[in-house]
């Protein structure tokens, strides 16, 4: 599928071990920054009951959902531990601190 890259801001806009959300036609996307200064983007929607993952505590390369403490991998979007479920991961690029995410052009073209 064609990808459209969109600049969303700078890495410093996100706190270390924190997250921000980005509004898109595909819904809210969470952009996460780990203690190690890596960035990930996943849908801001817990596979369990739809909790906003950007509001959770970020630890290692995972986030704990604020609603019921599911732990979601930022890399794979999969729930860790005994829970089963997955959220979509979104391609993200970090070029000298400038972040861009890729949206699907199919959805973009929908008028």
């Amino acid at each position: 599928m064609d990808m459209n890259w969109h600049q969303i801001g700078r890495i410093e806009d996100i706190p270390l071990r924190g997250a921000r959300c980005v509004s898109t036609p595909q819904g809210k996307i969470g952009v996460f920054r780990t203690a190690e200064n890596e960035v990930f983007a996943i849908e801001d929607h817990c596979p369990h009951k739809g909790g906003p993952l950007t509001q959770g505590i970020v630890h290692g390369k995972a986030v704990t959902c604020p609603l019921h403490n599911w732990v979601i991998s930022l890399e794979t979007g999969k729930a860790l531990g005994a829970d089963a479920g997955v959220v979509k991961t979104i391609p993200i690029r970090n070029e000298n601190g400038v972040l861009s995410i890729a949206l699907e052009s199919l959805l973009m073209a929908a008028e």
Binding site: N4, H6, Q7, G9, D13, V22, S23, T24, P25
Partner: peptide
Amino acid sequence: PMATVGFSQ
């Protein structure tokens, strides 16, 4: 939100 993207297009 950090940004709002994709809507204008």
